[in-house]
């Protein structure tokens, strides 16, 4: 019981973590917020389903193709909407509202393309369950954890070791100074939206075989990922992962031992408690109005 719960918690925690990473990246790079991550995950899941189940591509190809498309989609979103609004001098709350507008449109788009039924995706591996420490686990949930881990490590290396990642962090810290040093700030912020979309879409593809694909799958997950980012300290990449894992554990264990009916109630309540008593999260973020 405990071990299967832990694996479940790690899995859902990594899912939230991937979304939270996207939220944090965008926030730390441009000080903007997005509410689209959950819906991008949903779109990613549908794209993956289309490539893998309908067109019969190998899973790896479907996964990479989806990540690439979502990457371009994120770039497009930033160029065609966010940048346009920013150039018009829109205040940050308008950006938030515009991402909410997008996140309303995307599920309807998916419904128009793929219908409103939940679509089951065949298992990636030949086996339906594997035994770990005496409990049977879906191999896909292990894959989610592994991919989450790999993505985190890669992103960490990219941000700290690569030239481009360092210039991204510089642009986030002081856009004016960075652009005077020859860094293309517009490109780096565009890239953060692209990476965030790719992370969400990639994890969506992996979730397909676990939960099935439906237009509503992103609603709650998106908000939970946001909650994970807030709990960890908004804008802090490592905090986002820690907060998401914490949320995953609390949620899974509450569902396992106390109540499944009020599982989501507990997660949102935890979020509100954190916002009231620890508004900077576990890793200190700027949230107050008058900072």
């Amino acid at each position: 019981m405990v071990i299967s719960l832990i694996i479940g918690a790690l899995m859902i925690g990594s899912v939230y973590g991937m979304l939270a990473l996207g939220y944090s990246l965008i926030y730390s790079a441009s000080g903007l917020m997005t509410f689209t991550q959950g819906q991008l995950l949903m779109i990613g899941a549908f794209l993956g389903m289309q490539f893998y189940k309908v067109w019969g591509l190998p899973f790896l190809a479907a996964f990479l193709l989806t990540v690439l498309i979502m990457f371009l989609f994120g770039m497009l979103l930033e160029k065609c909407l966010i940048r346009v609004l920013l150039n018009k001098g829109a205040v940050s709350i308008y950006i938030v509202l515009s991402t909410i507008g997008i996140s309303i449109i995307l599920p309807n788009l998916a419904q128009a393309l793929w219908g409103s039924q939940t679509i089951q995706v065949p298992s990636i591996f030949g086996v339906t369950t594997v035994k770990i420490l005496g409990v049977s686990v879906q191999p896909e949930s292990l894959l989610v954890i592994a991919v989450g881990l790999i993505a985190m490590v890669l992103l960490h290396l990219f941000m700290t070791k690569s030239r481009f990642g360092i210039s991204m962090r510089a642009a986030a810290m002081d856009p004016l100074a960075a652009s005077s040093l020859g860094i293309n700030v517009s490109l780096t912020t565009g890239l953060t939206w692209a990476i965030a979309a790719a992370l969400a879409g990639g994890i969506g593809v992996l979730l397909g075989p676990v939960y099935g694909v439906s237009t509503g799958m992103g609603d709650i997950i998106g908000n939970k990922g946001f909650a994970g980012a807030v709990i960890g300290g908004y804008g802090n990449m490592y905090g986002a992962i820690a907060g998401s894992l914490l949320l995953g554990f609390v949620e899974t264990f509450v569902a396992g031992y106390i109540t499944t009916t009020y599982k989501d109630f507990v997660s949102f309540f935890l979020l509100i408690i954190v916002m009231i008593f620890l508004p900077r999260g576990l890793f200190k973020a700027k949230v107050y109005d008058s900072d």
Binding site: F226, D264, Y288
Partner: peptide
């Protein structure tokens, strides 16, 4: 009481969560 201290993106999230809580 908690909302009055937050900047708007966090306020957006807090109010979304309150909406979810009441709905649940």
């Amino acid at each position: 009481l908690p909302a009055s201290k937050l900047i708007h993106h966090f306020l957006a999230l807090l109010t979304i969560s309150v909406g979810q809580l009441v709905y649940i």
